[in-house]
Nucleic acid binder design. Structure first.
Lengths: 188, 188
DNA sequence: ACCTGAACACCGTTCAAGT
DNA sequence: ACCTGAACACCGTTCAAGT
């Protein structure tokens, strides 16, 4: 909950941004095991300051995850403009997956590692889902995908793809998983 | 590496079995965060004893994961006897997935959480893959699945399915993910 | 208001002492 | 050979003191 109620004092705002940026870098690099102390040091602040903004490590990660979800929504919104209804759907998934390729922590998060409570993430998720629903319905109207496809399926497939992304780094990467899954979407 | 070189002294053997069983229970219940001390207590031994058999928590989990892989191989071997070539493949995936439904730690492990080194697991994996290759080839010869399907795809799909299993507990569960993925296997 | 870092708590791991 | 548990180390989190 990167709560930005009353504007922060200028230096505090700068610190907050540094913290978020450092956290993004270190978590992406090292996954969930990046250490709070290291993040604070990387941001050039004391740990106390970090904890003043984010009460727990979980809260910090949640903030980053929410940013990613907002990016997902932006990507989906762009893909809605693609003329071909099937490509709109497929491209959305592919581009979202590409956007998190270097971010180990988000991949872990996406798999719900450590049973995070994901405070506030439902808002972001439903904003995203609203767009995705439209994309899916258009594809269905065009007969490009199976009639029983739902938004939950979309999330599920992204979850599966993310898992293979984290798991397998070889040439047979997550693209392959996504291809298989996309092939399964065609009407039978 | 549950190394069983020279037979253990009777009491030590009994302790080892208790440890493995307790670890299985607690990890399944609580995921990777089950504590070593709790496992030792549950098994009725001191922590020192636990560490005498398994040098690290990782090694303990690895041992359990290897057991699961061996079970996977047993399941695959049974499924090889199914007459319908497509069903042999689909049933193998479905039954393997079912077998780990209650085991949170394995699900996490399957997703390579914490970058475990998976000592020795390659052996188990290749034993399993040998069987799976035969099942896949038979399905391909029968024209029941796409010609470009490989064993790595099998692992990838199980990985994705496991992730959704851990991630989503609703009615739209992992079965749905598996269905979508299986649908994608049919020759186009 | 916000910053700092020493101190605390928790849990994985070690090791000296015991049988 | 094997067992035990007190002690250590590491890292997330707190809080008293300072600006």
């Amino acid at each position: 909950m990167t709560t930005e109620q009353r504007p922060l004092r200028a230096d505090a705002q700068r610190n907050l941004e540094r913290i978020t940026a450092s956290a993004q870098v270190l978590f992406a690099e090292r996954g969930t095991r990046a250490q709070m102390e290291d993040i604070a040091a990387h941001a050039g602040v004391g740990i106390g300051t970090l904890y003043r903004r984010f009460p727990t490590k979980e809260a910090l990660i949640t903030a980053l995850v929410r940013q990613r979800f907002q990016e997902f929504a932006a990507i989906a919104a762009e893909c809605e403009h693609i003329t071909d209804p099937y490509e709109a759907l497929a491209t959305s998934m592919r581009r979202q997956a590409e956007s998190i390729e270097g971010d180990a922590a988000f991949q872990l998060a996406m798999m719900n590692i450590d049973n995070f409570s994901w405070d506030g993430i439902d808002e972001d998720k439903s904003a995203l889902n609203a767009i995705l629903s439209r994309i899916i319905e258009r594809a269905q109207a065009a007969g490009a995908v199976r009639a029983d496809l739902g938004v939950e399926d979309y999330g599920m497939m992204m979850c599966g793809t993310t898992a293979t992304m984290y798991f397998m780094h070889g040439e047979h990467g997550w693209q392959r998983h996504l291809d298989l899954v996309l092939a399964g979407l065609k009407p039978s």
